[in-house]
Every structure is written in C-alpha cells, then in structure tokens.
Write a protein that binds this DNA or RNA. Sequence first.
DNA 1: TATTGTTATACTCTATAACTATA
DNA 2: TATAGTTATAGAGTATAACAATA
Lengths: 169, 169
Amino acid sequence: MADAGAEPRAARERDPDLSFGALQEVLGFHVTLASIVTVGLFERHVGEPLGLRKAEYSLLMLLLANGPTPAKRLAQTLRLSAPQLTMMIDRLQDAHWLRRERNPADRRSQFVVLTREGDALARRAAAVSKPMERELLQCLSPAERAILIELLMKVAAYRQPQPVDAEAS
Amino acid sequence: MADAGAEPRAARERDPDLSFGALQEVLGFHVTLASIVTVGLFERHVGEPLGLRKAEYSLLMLLLANGPTPAKRLAQTLRLSAPQLTMMIDRLQDAHWLRRERNPADRRSQFVVLTREGDALARRAAAVSKPMERELLQCLSPAERAILIELLMKVAAYRQPQPVDAEAS
DNA sequence: TATTGTTATACTCTATAACTATA
DNA sequence: TATAGTTATAGAGTATAACAATA
C-alpha cells in the first residue's frame, strides 16, 4: 500500500538501526558491529577464494613476516589457546603448507616452518588482502583508517588488572 | 638460568608480539585483537556478574532505549539471524525478563516487551557498563575513545556492494 | 615443579534449510 | 508469492581438564 515499486521491499532498502541508547557509549558493541563487516570482507576477498579461515590466514602472514617461529609465540600473538593452535597446525600441515620442527635446544618446543607451497599461498593471501583493504576506503579515508588501526592497537595492548592478592610482593 | 627472579616467568612478564607483517595494514586483524579485550571487559563487568551474554545485554539495552520493539528490528540492529533471535527471546522470556506480544495490525509479527523485572535488570546492566567503560580510559583518552567509536560506526555502516546483475532496474 | 604440546570434551556462536502462519 | 517467526541440524570458535614429554 505504501509500496513505491514492484520488487519486494527487502531487496531495495533497509530499516535504519534502532536507537542504541546506552550502547552508544559501549566500545565493545561498536567493535562487534564493525567486526561483522570486516569478517564479511575477509570471507569475500580471502577466505572463500583461498579456502582459509581467519586465524589460518593470520598465521601464514606471521610466518611470512617472521620466518620459522616457535609455536608458543604464534599462539601468544594471535591470542590462540594451545589446543586451538595444535589443531590449526595439524590442518595446515595436512595441506602441506607448513611443517613442525623440534627445537634442538629445548626439545619440548617446536618451530613452525612454511613449506615452499605454503610460502606461495601466503604470498597470494597477502596479495588479495590489498584489494580487501582498498574496498574499505569506500567508508574510511586513508587517514581515518590509519587512526582507527592505531587506536585499536591501544585497546588490544590493554591487559586486565591482575587481582592484587597479599601473596604477591 | 637467564631467570632473574624466583617466581615462574609466565606470571611476571609476556613476550612482545611477533612482527605483524602484512597484517599491520589489515583492519580486520586489529578489530579481532581489540575485540578480545572488549569481550574480556564485558565478561568481568557485566556478563559474569549479571549472568548475561553479550547479545542478551545488547537486546536489553535496545528495549530500554526504544520501548516495545518489533522483533524484526531488534534482529536487524544487532545483526542476528532469525533463529538466533528466537532462541534468545525464548531464554530471556523463560527468565521472566521480557515477553512476546502479537502485533494486532499484522499477526505475523510480534513486539518484544520488557517485564518489570527485565526493566530493572536492564537498568542494572546499564549501570555496571559505566565502570566498564571507565576502565577503558586506562588505554584511551576520552577524545580517543570518541573518535574510535565514530570510526567503527563508519565501518559498521558499510554494506557490501551488491553483485550488479543485468536484471536489476 | 614448571613448561610445551596433545587429546578429549563441551559449550557458545553462526549459518542454513524446512517448516507454519499470516499477508 | 512474500514475510515473520520457529524448529532442527551442522559447523566453526573457544574454554578447560587431563595427559605426555621435557626441562
């Protein structure tokens, strides 16, 4: 009745968001909404074309930048639990993109090393993430993007205050 | 051997992050790392104390700000799928925090309405999120926080380009 | 006794298809 | 035929405990 065109309404427009109320001031809420956009961008440009999950892509990028790397440090940088990293490395190793190497100096730990194929894949992944970031410039100027990353890094670096107990001194 | 103190090393310090390489320029990566911090903050200040999940908290805040609201619009604003919203409302209704009301004008749709207890809980949740945001000021100035939210909103508002097919128009 | 890594398990979150009732 | 909502199912992500090997 109030319909202006022939096509179904959902295909043409979208209701504006409700009033955020108290959420407007809650940083985590806005981080969550923004992450839905960045995840969608990742899937379209990198995840689906190359068959990589987000964390797998990040792992490859770290190996490309740092060379053979202790598994523990990969987990720390990507905030992955030890079991998560184990399963991820299993999967990437099964795909012949990397291999484990025992650290001869401390046989508990291991280095993760890109294979030749893994190195090629990592370079392809790095390449396709450039158009992904270029698409983001449709909503952010280059300067805004730089500021946004800088501020997000400040948040990411924050470590919750340890509960101060009497034992510690 | 290189250990300077008596306590286990993990309790005292933390290795610096690896070189991010290409990830440094990837917005989504920084959004992910920042979200780990904001989620932790939420759990400590709101989620664990009040027994609320992130999306449940957001839903209560929207109802507090908007009054009785069509379910469809809640799902759109929070980017929830229809099944996700159904299950969430089930849970919150079982806890007597809200109820469904059929829309008499269109009996397919329904309004979601806070109960008296739900209203009280929502106000408590809004109250405890203030100290949560105050804690964030340990890593961001108030001005930085405002800019960060503004830029995240620009990203969140971005809608992927529709595949342009010949049919349209 | 602490650390690195693995295995097993469970729970949350998300995506999708199939269905109903209404329009 | 389209829309609002529900049910069911499966996959991915995350957290934890128990364990083995090494230091």
